[in-house]
Amino acid sequence: MKKPATPTVEPEGKGSETRERILTAAEDLLRRHGLAKTTVVDVARALEMSHANVYRHFASKTELQDAVAQRWLHRIMEPLRAIVAEDGSAAERLERWVMTLAAQKRAKVLNDPELFAAYHAVAQAARAVVEAHIDELLDNVAAIIRDGVERGEFKVADPRAAATAVLNATSRFHHPYHVKESGGRDTSDEIRDVFKLVLAGLRSGTL
């Protein structure tokens, strides 16, 4: 009697390597063909592997696209996390954080429009990856505000609520819908004007 075939198990470390290859191929397809042409089968064909192999890492097209968006967002967050971790004036860091976020989104519209469009579609669907991104943005801003309170720069009772207000006040400069509609126009001067009001609120305790 013939023994059943033993399932193929990827060597330790190989699974994450294959996952990264899949994500890189999916990104490339998104850039060249958009969301419609970034299915599990298309990615498998580009990598010359079976679609079953892709499915071992991503259960569906939606999960694959969300993972691409998550990796894209991770790159955006890297310089923002660095600003949060710095020492120095909370007001200066907070303004630079917002400016950096807006600049990152503008750059994506201008230099990576296809992938930005894919992220925008994911954002419109309000999927978990976007919710996690928004939570991290709030955590970043709240951490800077909390530091500002400890330094005596801000008068804020609830840093998380104030962080929500800051992101809402500046959303038209970094929200994917507004950035897309503006065509990546440089809004730095407008951000500075809005931020004067934001800082006034943080310093007076009205935010």
Rank of each mutant, 00 (worst) to 15 (best):
A59E: 11
P176Y: 10
R32M: 08
A165K: 12
H74M: 00
D158G: 03
E95H: 14
R151M: 00
A91W: 04
T38L: 01
Y177Q: 14
G184M: 06
V141K: 04
D158F: 10
H120R: 13
N168D: 13
E12S: 04
R151P: 00
V122W: 15
A117P: 05
A107V: 07
K37Q: 06
H57R: 07
N140M: 14
T100H: 11
G205Q: 11
F154I: 01
R192Y: 02
A126F: 13
K2P: 13
V54W: 08
R127N: 12
E20M: 13
E95V: 11
K196E: 10
G201Q: 08
T164S: 10
A46E: 09
K2C: 09
K155F: 12
R146C: 04
D87E: 08
S171F: 15
V122A: 15
A85I: 02
G15Q: 01
T6Y: 02
A123L: 02
A126Y: 13
T6P: 00
D66N: 00
K180N: 08
L47D: 05
E150I: 01
K14F: 06
E86C: 11
S89E: 14
P4S: 08
K3H: 10
D186I: 04
V109T: 05
A143N: 05
D158L: 03
L110Q: 13
V130C: 10
L94K: 08
M77H: 14
